[in-house]
């Protein structure tokens, strides 16, 4: 919509100034406030998943200790480096736009775009590996890999241990442990005072040392989880949250690639400069939050 025919009382009306703003500064500050609000919604969108992570990890810490052994720390570290570097080039792009250095702006935006591509390529190999091995979320976790030959974990000599077998195994172990102990004193518990049943609680007595004893940190697991008698019950739950969080993050990287691609296009046409760099600045803010979320995801899944 063009409002240039209407009286504004502005002698020289900048091209990018909307008709309802008094001046460029006011418009820029409003755009930036809007972007920060949008980032707040992004934080809360991922916040839901981070809370889910915290709840499940609190209830089932053994799943996380076990599941993370099947992630490739090297690949995660490479991706972290790539994203941090691309954030650097993005920040440089903003500065170059403000300094009106067109070529440097374009180069930095392209580097950022390449960083995003690199991240997605590494992510593709990670996902492809998981899918190949059949290490998937939910019920699909309990299907053997489609291509047994190609699996690097699968041992044709070992049996599949399904959920029922595993459960029976755990009950046996617990009963064996209980035999040596005196019977527990039967007394009313706190929850019985209320007519409302107490909330479900996670398995008591998780011993991180025991898990570590089974899986030496830093040494990659060499047994397929489906054939592993030491696998915790519901091991698939780690991969539920892993795929949900990294998947949503991956979608954000793809959106970021579209945004940066659009910025490259406009930068190539010379749209940005010291008097107008709002899209570069806002696109940069978005890219930084995508980066920042990954910086949390990497340790939460790969390292701890």
């Amino acid at each position: 919509m063009s409002h240039s025919h209407e009286q504004h009382g502005h002698g020289d009306h900048p091209e990018h100034l909307g008709h309802h703003w008094d001046n460029v500064q006011q418009q820029f500050e409003a755009s930036k406030l809007g972007m920060w609000l949008f980032l707040a919604t992004e934080v809360l969108l991922f916040g839901g998943l981070f809370v889910a992570y915290a709840v499940w990890r609190g209830n089932n810490p053994e799943l996380y200790a076990y599941g993370s052994e099947y992630l490739d720390v090297t690949m995660g570290a490479i991706n972290t480096t790539i994203l941090i570097l691309s954030s650097l080039t993005m920040a440089m792009a903003v500065t170059y736009a403000q300094l009106n250095r067109q070529t440097a702006l374009l180069v930095c935006l392209i580097l950022t775009f390449l960083g995003a591509c690199g991240f997605m390529i590494v992510k593709y190999f990670e996902y492809a590996d998981k899918i190949q091995e059949g290490i998937l979320p939910g019920a699909a976790f309990y299907e053997p890999p489609a291509n047994l030959e190609a699996s690097k974990y699968w041992n044709p000599d070992l049996p599949i241990i399904d959920r029922e077998t595993l459960l029976a195994l755990r009950i046996q172990e617990a009963e064996r442990e209980r035999e040596g102990r005196p019977a527990q004193i039967d007394r009313p518990r706190f929850g019985e005072v209320s007519s409302v049943a107490p909330a479900a609680v996670g398995p008591a007595g998780f011993d991180p040392d025991a898990v570590r004893a089974r899986h030496v940190r830093g040494e990659k697991s060499n047994v397929h989880p489906l054939q592993d008698p030491n696998r915790p019950i519901n091991a698939h739950m780690f991969f539920n949250i892993y795929f949900m969080m990294t998947g949503l993050h991956g979608i954000h990287v793809l959106v970021g690639m579209i945004v940066i691609g659009w910025l490259i296009y406009r930068a190539a046409l010379g749209h940005f400069g010291s008097d107008y760099f709002t899209p570069v600045d806002l696109g940069g803010l978005y890219w930084h939050i995508v980066d920042l979320i990954w910086i949390f995801l990497f340790p939460l899944f790969y390292l701890i």
Binding site: G138, I233, N234, H236
Partner: peptide, 11 residues
């Protein structure tokens, strides 16, 4: 996909 986030049968 039936991944069992809210399904007690799958934890």
């Amino acid at each position: 996909f039936g991944i069992g986030i809210f399904d007690p049968a799958l934890g």
